[in-house]
Simulated assay, not measured.
Amino acid sequence: MTFTPLTSDFYGFATDLTETEQASLGQIRAFMEDEVQPVIDDHWHRDAFPMDLIPGIAGLGVIGAGWAESARFENSAVYRGWVALEMSRIDASVSTFVGVQNGLVAGSIGVAGSAEQRAEWLPKLADCSVVGAFGLTEPLSGSDSSQGLRTVARRDGDEWVIDGAKRWIGNATHADIVIIWAKDADDGKVKGFIVPTDAAGYSATKIERKISLRMVQNADIVLEGVRVPESMRLQEASSFRDTARVLRLTRAEVAWSAVGIMIGAYEAAVRYSRERVQFGKPIAGHQLVQDMLAKSLGHITASIALCVQVSRMLDEGRQADAHSALAKSFTTSHMREVVGWCREICGGNGIVTDYGVARFFADAEAIYTYEGTAQMNALIVGRAITGESAFV
């Protein structure tokens, strides 16, 4: 399929992708524009995820990307970033579903699972015959998850007994398995477990009344004496450092997703500015509107450049926590400015979904917060700069 770089990719970064990667992106863009965009506002307003689109998403080959057991072709981290951008340009909730399924769930098993666990679960996650969720954040533990986990796992013979609670867990209401991170009652180390959602003592309750990423089915999870066999413990996870390895891989893709949201809002604002007539001409011809569009394009271009480089570093094995943290902090902070300018360009019409900006404006708030707030990621970067930790 022919791939045409986005006009918002002002410096043409996407032309550096291989022909195979460009063709795949063209297929993804067509699916998002033809299948997702026509139904997305309705589902957003109804607070419902379009479950019927999951087989089509699986058919794109974007889940399992990066994991040898299920990758359709040799995928670079740069390519995977462009996938997140292309999806988020149309809808951040669909991109988040893929990010959870591929980066957090398949990523946890790919990074910390045994060979047997990888062989069993990664193909099922890739074709979405199994839907996964990632359980790290808790009602009383978010930014301090490395130290403050209250969910506990206790060894009992050949089984583990898990007690605790998780919050803001995406996909959790319709997932088949959840990766649960819990503190070992004996050694205090954080370990990961593949928990079937039909296990006795497990329950998930949908979080209602969200104003951001409304289509993502976030849930409160309660685990009361949930038993899983030792074979369901992630065999290569023995501390929070292993959790952090997963987050390092996905945090950069969240940065890419933030760029996609910027572009979605920017493209809608450009369209609106050409159609909206005030003072006898389209507002696209007014200086202040052009100034906001130019600043938006500058933020987009700088963010793409940063994301491309941090993903190249991942491909080369040079990416560290501070690199992905800077990408996430920088892009999401600038995303807030861009969606604000784009909403302003649309005036009062910018607060209803009919004109294409409002959904991006609202969804940006969730992207700004999850996978580490801008402030927490800034502290990771600050530690790398100074050699001193400012974490409490």
Rank of each mutant, 00 (worst) to 15 (best):
V228Q: 12
L379W: 10
Q217V: 05
A14L: 01
T243N: 11
K206L: 15
V381R: 08
E337D: 14
N218R: 10
I380N: 04
V289H: 01
G192N: 07
L85P: 01
P55E: 00
A175M: 09
F361H: 12
V270E: 09
M87I: 02
V152H: 06
G356E: 02
A175W: 03
F49T: 04
A378V: 05
I385K: 04
S88H: 06
I351R: 10
I177A: 14
D187Y: 04
I304P: 00
A378I: 01
E337W: 06
D156R: 03
L306N: 08
S143T: 13
T331N: 11
L104F: 13
E35A: 08
V381H: 01
A112Q: 11
V98Y: 08
A153M: 03
A302M: 06
S143G: 14
A384C: 12
A325I: 06
D47F: 15
N349G: 12
A165L: 10
W44D: 13
W67I: 06
F31N: 09
Q287F: 13
V222F: 08
I261P: 12
R241M: 13
G285P: 05
Q287Y: 11
F49N: 06
E316S: 13
S333D: 07
V98L: 01
V98R: 04
R167D: 01
N102R: 07
F13Y: 15
D315S: 13
W82M: 09
A112E: 04
D91P: 05
R383F: 05
E35C: 03
D184F: 14
D52S: 06
C346F: 02
S257K: 15
R271Y: 09
L293I: 08
A219T: 02
G348H: 11
Y272D: 06
F31E: 09
P229I: 08
P123W: 00
G99I: 04
G107P: 04
A384D: 15
E21V: 14
A119C: 02
D41W: 03
A92Y: 02
D144Y: 02
A165R: 14
P282V: 03
A48P: 03
A362Q: 05
R248S: 12
T373N: 03
D184I: 05
G298N: 15
D321C: 03
I304K: 04
S231D: 14
I345H: 00
V178L: 02
I90N: 03
S108G: 11
G64F: 06
L53A: 06
A106E: 10
V339W: 12
Q117E: 09
G113T: 06
H174T: 13
L149S: 05
D242V: 10
A126S: 04
A200F: 11
A325L: 07
P5K: 07
R312D: 12
S108E: 07
